[in-house]
Every structure is written in C-alpha cells, then in structure tokens.
Amino acid sequence: MSEATEIHPGEVHIGDVDEVAETAYAPKAEPPVTRFWREFRQSPVAVLGLAVVVVITLAAVFAPFITPQNPYDLAQLSILEGRLPPMSQSMDGMTYWLGTDDQGRDMLSAIIYGLRISLGIGAMSTFIAVLIGGSLGLLAAYYGGRIESLIMRVVDLQLSFPAILVALILLAVLGRGVDKVLIALVIVQWAYYARTIRGQALVERRKEYIEAARCLALSDRRIVFRHLLPNCLPPVIVVGTVQVANAIALEATLSFLGVGVPITEPSLGLLISNGYGYMLSGDYWISFFPGIALVIAVVSLNLVGDQLRDVLNPRLQR
C-alpha cells in the first residue's frame, strides 16, 4: 500500500475500500475543479444545500417570469381577497398556495420578490466588501509597517463592536433605503475580509514562489495580483459564503426593526415585520412563510460554506 501513504490521512476511511481505491488510483494530474467537486459531494447535506442555493438564486433572478402575480402591480391586487389562508382560491380561479396578506397580495409571489431583494443585497454587499476589505488586507500584508498597523488597528476596533450595533448606528445617521442598507452592510463586513486575507497573505508571502518571483524582478503589482492574490482566495471564498448568509440575516433583522429597506422594496425581513401584527391574531402565514424562506436561504448558504471550509482548508480536514 505505498500509494495509500501518499494521500492525505484525512481521506482514508477504514472499511471504505472504494474510497481508498478511487483516491489512490486517481490520475496524478487531476484537474482542481474535479478534485474539488469530488471532495465537496462527500457530504450529501452540503450538496442538498448547494441545490437549494441554486434553485432560490434562479427563482430570485427570474422572479417576474415564474411568480403567479406581480405583487407590486396594484391593478392585480384585490383588497377583498386580503388575509386569505393558504390554499384558498381567488375569484379568477388562481390558487393562493401560501395565502394572501392584508392587501390581497399573493404571499408566494411576494416571497419570491422579497428573496430577490434579500439575496441581491446580501450578495452585492459581500462582493463590495470583499473588494474593499481584500484590497486593504493585501495592502497591509504586502507593505507592512505603518500602513499595516493603521489598517489593522481600525479592523480590531471595528470588530470589537457587534455588527448589528454598527449597522444600527450607521442607519440612524444615514436613514432608510436600499443603498443605505448596502453601505451599512459593506462597512460592517469589510473588516472580516481585511483580517482574513492579511492572515493568509502573511503566510503566503514567505513561501518560495514569492521569493522566486522577486528574484525574477517582477513588478510589485504583478507579484501581488498574479501570484499572491490567487493563493489568498480560498479562505476568502469560505468566509464570503458564510458572510452572504450573515448579511442576508442582518438585512432581514434591520428591516424587521424598521430601519432597513423602505416599504416600496420589501425584502423578506420587511414581509415578516408586516405580518407580525397579524400573527398574534392567528393569521400566521403572512409572517410565517417569509420567515421559512429566510431560514431556508440562510441555512443552505451556511451548509455550503461549512463544506467549502472543509474542502478548501486542508488543515481542517478530519
């Protein structure tokens, strides 16, 4: 079994002969994507999570084509059909699978549109935060000295306060609005990426390939962007996936508290907040189903993130 000693001990499961054989006799030059997918699908729960993420993303992107009704076209709403329980029939024969809200809006359509806003804000804010935080982290690690200690002091200071508090204060100053929520979420998140990428870059910087690149007299810019950056990305991808989930949950919380998105652009959090008053009188569905949608989105993103962490970080492999 000389081949078996070459593979990572974490991948060998006693009694799992197929597994060992597959790993041991896999061709040496296996493309990274194939290897990644083989390791990723070892957790069926994570694959399920990934499937859910893909489905809800598609639903959010194509919302206008798949929803039974445009929930914000007032001409399509009938206030007479307000607060109907799930599975009721509308007057023109449509079924309200998840019931209607107080204005006669189909909850299923409202949820898919809400998902669109929630996912959009979550993904967008994470993307911008990765760009800003990543650049600053990389800058800090590569140049060191004063720049580094300044950036990292700010990161430490910000991370000593809980995200929700920072976001609340920012929104108290800025006011309500999708753009303002986006700004608040970016400011809340950038520090995580700055810290993550700096930590990774400090490790990578000392490796031989960077030294080799320096010996070839490549420019600073080329070394940072073509050599250092790609090798710092895996942990950022992991933190990013989980952070999209956190950003969605935080946005929902802020909107639920009434300081997030405006009523013209209801995300899942605002839908839950709108239905909250009716919940106490027993009309649970107006608040309950948007909540379920939120939980499904957040949990499935977390599952994918957890598995990504296990696959991309060899030190954490069990």
Binding site: A245, A252, F256, I272, L280, G291, V299, N302
Partner: peptide, 13 residues
C-alpha cells in the same frame, strides 16, 4: 444560523 428575531417570533407563535 437562524436569525435571532425569527427565533423570537417562533417562540411567540
């Protein structure tokens, strides 16, 4: 992973 306010709503419900 579950949002705090949603947990609260479910407890109330």
């Amino acid at each position: 992973s579950l949002p705090n306010f949603w947990q609260g709503l479910m407890l109330i419900m």
